[in-house]
Design a protein around this nucleic acid. Structure first.
Lengths: 232, 232
DNA sequence: GGTCAAGATTTGTGATCGCGATATTGCAAA
DNA sequence: TTTGCAATATCGCGATCACAAATCTTGACC
């Protein structure tokens, strides 16, 4: 479905190349298409994308500022290797930010919002039962941000997104630890409890449920993950 | 004190130009040398700095990713114009993040750390009494981060820094509202109370003091600031 | 088989150029 | 003086080139 004006002309695409490259890299990173530690060079990537290396360099700069890519001493970038310590720190920050956002959102959510959240919640449950990891992660993202979006603080949402940019690519590689048993993740998944708390307008309970969801998920990951420098 | 090798040669400076431009822009932004709403163009800035526009473009990309510069529809960037709403949101995020960081830090600070914090605190008091706004803001930054640095969570510090990058340039222009009466800011400055709470190892009290410091400072600013779109 | 140095390749970095779009200026008409 | 518009200057963007440093390859030698 190409964009067409009323005269049948295709709409001029004014989105800069570097922006497209950036979005493409975010997508690739968040869906775990790169291996942690993988080195990315602007020239090679440019060749793969069929552009010059300039737009790629721009995208690298942005991603590196957000810590979604790690700068190497020689100026190259690599997909971040997350250590157990960094993962714990990011989890701690997540509980603080996402807990607060949930608490704020609970007080502002109305019927219409709630209906959308419930839909995301049931889709999330479904995805877990069906065992599709990619779909599960995508639905998990959609569900949580359908709540955070209503916290009334755009700055907070931005910060949460930057944290997810750092954890996201990592989660993908770890969720694979569940293999065919993705449904078992529902045992430590409190998203139904979150919805119930929001319905009851109980902000403190909603915060507690989100925090618990984040923490138990992280603990489960820490249990079965192999982190660099922690033996093999 | 230039870097000299043992042969008296000046050390080759291998810091990339785009990094220097970035640091220079951060410094200029944080010290309020740009007016909110001011448009920055890579070409003009490059000419002023005596470089090509490439390093400037890189620096723009990074600052824009961190929201320290706002992208314009045509791709230019401008120094962010902060609205009353955005300022309130950023303040709310600050209380959450910096409150948590202070609470965590209180539990980890030992005698040596405390001595440095006390020094920063007294320097801050001194700067307020002397009435030098720039010095006050610098000391305020140094004092607060001398605490946050010990929170044991590098990711949290990074997020706090990005928030400061957004509020910093704005604070400068508003602190000028105090004019010759900077010493009066001490009336709503709870940094001595923060130090006392840390000394007493009372994490909850330290958090409350920092939050109060942030909130009352922000309230004072909101009272006398002229925000865009709020009449004149 | 392992080591190391020379050569070849790749890479980051920054300058420059060209294109199309945007913004600014200058001037004439109302 | 204000309005309309064309000439001009400036700008974002992306491609390409040059150069030095880093990295990889290769092959001779111990």
């Amino acid at each position: 479905m190409a964009d067409r004006t009323q005269f049948g002309l295709s709409a001029i695409d004014s989105v800069p190349l570097h922006e497209k490259v950036y979005l493409e890299l975010v997508r690739a990173l968040m869906s775990g298409q790169f291996t942690p530690g993988q080195k990315l060079t602007s020239r090679r990537l440019a060749k793969e994308l069929g552009t010059s290396d300039m737009p790629v360099r721009s995208a690298f700069m942005r991603l590196q500022a957000l810590r979604a890519l790690s700068p190497m001493p020689n100026g190259s970038v690599e997909v971040p290797v997350i250590s157990a310590e960094r993962f714990s720190q990011l989890t701690a920050v997540r509980t603080i930010l996402e807990g607060s956002a949930t608490e704020l959102a609970t007080k502002r959510i109305n019927g219409n919002n709630l209906r959308a959240i419930r839909r995301h919640s049931s889709e999330l449950t479904l995805a877990a039962r069906e065992g599709d990891i990619d779909d599960y992660l995508r639905k998990n993202y959609a569900f949580k941000f359908s709540i955070y979006r209503h916290c009334g603080n755009e700055q907070m949402i931005f910060l949460i997104e930057t944290v997810w940019m750092q954890v996201g690519p990592f989660l993908r590689n770890l969720a694979m630890g569940f293999e065919d048993d993705l449904a078992s993740i529902l045992d430590i998944d409190y998203h139904e409890e979150v919805v119930a708390a929001i319905e009851a307008q109980d902000a403190a309970r909603a915060r507690a449920a989100i925090v618990r969801d984040i923490e138990e998920g992280a603990a489960h990951i820490l249990r079965q993950a192999r982190f660099p420098g922690a033996g093999r």
